[in-house]
């Protein structure tokens, strides 16, 4: 694992908001094929780190590189075209389109780039794109919903759809922001199952998560943030026994 090439390189990133230090000298390398979890208590800087990476938030110091290309200051569509797919805490899908149309849109942007208007052809579900989309949905268990309006799906199925939309773009890096927050246990387990398939297929995944069940089910490596600093980094079994991590989570009096 440690010999695989680096996909995402977070180089000495700091961010201050009006004097408040949100991130302090964060260094992090995500290697190809690994599933990396970023955990930490509330206010640890997880969301800030994510926004510095791909949310258009400029770091005060440092830089973020995706396979050698600088990401800081780029707009969402440019970052996606470079090969980063993002899954949101609340599923972000095209609620007014049908399920298969959602996935076809994702394939289309992967094939055509950020702007290529096609007026003459039909947006046809019998086309290559439509068939690819249908097969991908079938594989992840949404085969019965192809022609349903996506906004009417259950929350778990919306998450599943968002994951299908990400995977059909064959991303270099899949970023998940608390993918199971607010989900029923069954939906959480279904999500873990899908992510395990992605992982087995060799996808590089970064997951920001609160749910330890999800983290320890999936992560190859874990980075723990607290107070804007990386306080621990390593294999899951090392993190479990790390007294600094326990302290950061539970506070001194409970240790």
């Amino acid at each position: 694992m440690s010999t695989s090439p680096i996909v995402l390189h977070i180089d000495n990133v700091s961010k201050t908001f009006a004097g408040l230090l949100a991130l302090s000298n964060v260094n992090l390398d995500i290697r190809e094929g690994e599933t990396h979890a970023i955990i930490g208590p509330n206010g640890a800087g997880k969301s800030t780190l994510l926004n510095v990476c791909i949310g258009g938030l400029e770091p005060s110091r440092g830089k973020v590189l995706l396979a050698g290309t600088e990401l800081t200051g780029r707009r969402p569509h440019e970052i996606n075209q470079l090969g980063v797919a993002r899954v949101f805490q609340t599923p972000e899908i095209f609620g007014d389109l049908t399920v298969i149309e959602n996935v076809m849109m994702a394939i289309l942007s992967h094939r055509d780039g950020a702007f290529r208007p096609r007026f003459v052809t039909r947006f046809d579900q019998q086309s290559d794109i439509g068939r690819t989309a249908g097969a991908a949905l079938e594989k992840l268990g949404l085969g019965d919903h192809l022609h349903h309006i996506a906004g009417a799906l259950s929350r778990g199925d919306k998450r599943r759809l968002e994951l299908v939309m990400s995977v059909v773009q064959e991303p270099k890096l899949l970023l998940l922001d608390e993918p199971t927050a607010g989900m029923a246990r069954a939906d959480t387990n279904a999500t873990i199952e899908i992510l395990r398939q992605f992982k087995d297929a060799g996808m590089t995944i970064v997951i920001i998560e609160h749910d330890m069940h999800v983290v320890f089910s999936l992560a190859d490596r874990i980075t723990v943030l607290a107070g804007g600093r990386v306080i621990a980094q390593g294999l899951p079994e090392d993190i479990k026994g790390n007294p600094k991590v326990v302290e950061a989570y539970l506070g001194e009096e409970q240790v």
Partner: peptide, 21 residues
């Protein structure tokens, strides 16, 4: 056309459009 579907998708969720590339 695919162009028309893109416009519908913009109406539906512009944030997702950006992050879909």
């Amino acid at each position: 056309s695919p162009f028309g579907m893109t416009l519908r998708a913009i109406k539906s969720n512009q944030k997702r459009m950006g992050y879909t590339g």
